[in-house]
Design a protein around this nucleic acid. Structure first.
Length: 440
RNA sequence: GGCCCUAUCGUCUAUCGGUUAGGACACAAGCUUUUCAAGCUUGGAAGCCGGGUUCGACUCCCGGUAGGGUCACCA
């Protein structure tokens, strides 16, 4: 059996969102699964709308997310070949030049090239949907080139797919209606017809097609927000596809082995960002301490940049614990969440009390904590700090001691527990902050 | 509107004629060595409608409805 060759053929006319990249991943994964090749082709025949920055963006995202391609093509570099095939179609009577008024309103009469439609029923077996039949009579003699030197989409796609040896065209559902036309051109050119598989669309939250103002988050933006590339890939692949088991977390290798088109969904799906968050948290758990630290450092908010390296190292687990993606660190920082690591907090003395305690009672507990810590000489670890205070807290009520202790360090109703805070802050700063309250 | 595609919890989905319709995310409640987070336990939550076929339909067929795609000198 011939080697399978799939391709992803985006037009660089805008940002690609989850749907676009999902198409790419599925084509890539299908090729990998069957030991085939994956081709990336930039379809930039529309010179006016194509932008180099979008082409660059596609390459960058592929690089970042780790999708490799065996061959790369720029469609516009093949116009000579397209023209050649166009001429061949004209010579064989499968296409003809038509003098028509330009559609731009200028009233100019120009030559456009139309395909001579044989007006027949075209049937193909879609890899995902099964048999699809269309009466191409409805299509008329469709346009395949603006003029003899400017071939259009349908012609270019057919010629390139053939020349690049594409055996399986895996693309989005919106191309179903284009397929009969392209099959007709394949036949007219004497090319063998590839297999087609049309993926369902990734929808906006209201179940309609995505657009800039409706849920279409560019994949680069997810990457910029600090989602792990592997998590993003995993989440996108699980949207509209499942392995047939209850496994949801996959390594790249597993995906390449287990993915196949037969488990791809037929209906459109909404990409769920909550689920993406979950995937990302799962992937963060898998990171080494060093990796975690470098991600945190990369997204470190301005106000924490003066902190010592040692303190940042201690802060990493605390920060990561409550973040879905690394860009969220900034949101927490903006809410003042990390202020108490940088400087002693403002506090309201009444807030040190736990439930029914009085301020004086709470201060008495704090004084005890102060003394205990002051006399503590073992290693300054979370466990050590905890064990030195635990017995006292246990004897008079944990909340009665721990709440004022924690509040004196953070000045906030919500924060990590006091032992972790004390550990991060260090002994002298911890004592100083308790003293601040006692002196009030 | 024509043609084409699709239809299970809020979301992503399992089920390939017989199940208490399963899982995940999200949500709620409870538990856990103080708050938050995490973790653990429990819970609520679905077959679009109507006809067939069949001993038996979420599953097969037809119709309706709804949603989507496409009808460019864009891709």
């Amino acid at each position: 059996m011939n080697q399978i060759v799939t391709r992803f053929a985006p037009s660089p006319t805008g940002h690609l969102h989850a749907g676009g990249y999902r198409t790419a991943f599925f084509a890539y994964l299908f090729a990998k699964k069957h030991n085939g090749k994956f081709v990336l082709r930039i379809e930039d025949t529309d010179r006016e709308r194509s932008k180099q920055e979008y082409t660059d963006e596609i390459f960058n995202v592929f690089e970042t997310i780790g999708i490799s391609y065996d061959e790369k093509y720029i469609q516009s570099e093949h116009v000579n070949r397209h023209q050649e095939c166009l001429q061949q179609l004209i010579d064989s009577g499968n296409a003809y030049v038509s003098k028509e008024e330009a559609k731009d309103g200028s009233g100019v009469i120009k030559d456009i090239i139309r395909f001579k439609n044989p007006n027949k029923i075209v049937t193909f077996v879609d890899l995902i949907r099964g048999e699809i039949s269309t009466d191409t009579t409805d299509l008329g003699d469709f346009v395949i080139a603006k003029n003899i030197t400017e071939p259009l989409f349908h012609l270019a796609v057919v010629v390139d797919d053939h020349d690049e040896g594409i055996t399986h065209v895996i693309r989005a559902e919106e191309h179903i209606a284009n397929t009969p036309r392209q099959i007709l051109i394949h036949e007219a050119l004497g090319f063998s017809i590839p297999q087609y598989g049309h993926l369902p669309l990734v929808l906006a939250p209201d179940k309609t097609k995505m657009s800039k103002r409706k849920g279409a988050v560019p994949v680069v933006e997810y990457l910029e927000r600090g989602y792990l590339p592997a998590a993003l890939l995993n989440a996108i692949c699980l949207c509209g596809w499942n392995p047939g088991t209850e496994q949801e977390l996959f390594t790249r290798t597993e995906l390449e082995q287990v993915f196949d088109l037969d488990k791809v969904q037929k209906a459109g799906a909404i990409f769920n960002e909550e689920k993406l968050n979950w995937f990302n948290r799962e992937y963060i758990k898998l990171l080494s301490d060093d990796q975690k630290k470098s991600w945190v450092v990369k997204y470190l908010p301005e106000k924490l940049k003066g902190l010592s390296d040692d303190m940042i190292t201690k802060l990493v687990p605390v920060i990561i614990e409550r973040v879905n993606y690394f860009g969220e660190i900034k949101d927490f920082a903006d809410q003042g969440e990390y202020d108490y690591y940088v400087a002693p907090p403002e506090f309201t003395i009444e807030k040190i009390v736990w439930k029914t305690d009085t301020v004086d009672q709470s201060k008495a507990h704090l004084q005890k904590v102060y003394d205990v810590i002051n006399n503590y000489t073992d290693d300054w670890t979370v466990e050590g700090i905890k064990s030195t205070i635990w017995d006292y807290a246990e004897s008079v009520g944990r909340g009665n001691v721990l709440w004022p202790f924690r509040y004196s360090l953070s000045g906030r109703d919500k924060s990590p527990d006091p032992f972790v805070l004390a550990f991060i802050l260090g002994k002298s700063e911890t004592l100083q902050r308790i003293k601040n309250i006692l002196d009030k």
